[in-house]
């Protein structure tokens, strides 16, 4: 995945979690809350996951990460 893709993912991660933050700070009606949760929780988890993945890949201590441990995660 290229650099542009990473930036795009970061922007999308932020954009998709804005409604969740809005819902936390504003008191929205129940129907809107449900819609926000159902639509934006999976999408934002997906994009946050992509960003985390890119971070883990770019880490300098990649060698260390690759070392086999017993716990395996």
């Amino acid at each position: 995945m290229g650099k542009e893709n990473e930036i795009k993912n970061k922007i999308l991660a932020i954009v998709t979690s804005i409604p969740l933050l809005l819902g936390i700070f504003l008191n929205l009606p129940l129907a809107v809350t449900i819609a926000i949760l159902v639509v934006f929780v999976p999408i934002s988890t997906y994009y946050v996951g992509l960003v985390l993945m890119a971070r883990a890949k770019n880490k300098e201590d990649e060698e260390k990460r690759k070392k086999i441990t017993f716990t395996g995660y």
């Binding site: 969740l20 819902g23 008191n27 129940l30 449900i34 926000i36 949760l37």
Partner: peptide
């Protein structure tokens, strides 16, 4: 009565 987003989350 008020279900806010934090509660459900």
């Amino acid at each position: 009565v008020n279900f806010n987003l934090i509660y459900i989350l």
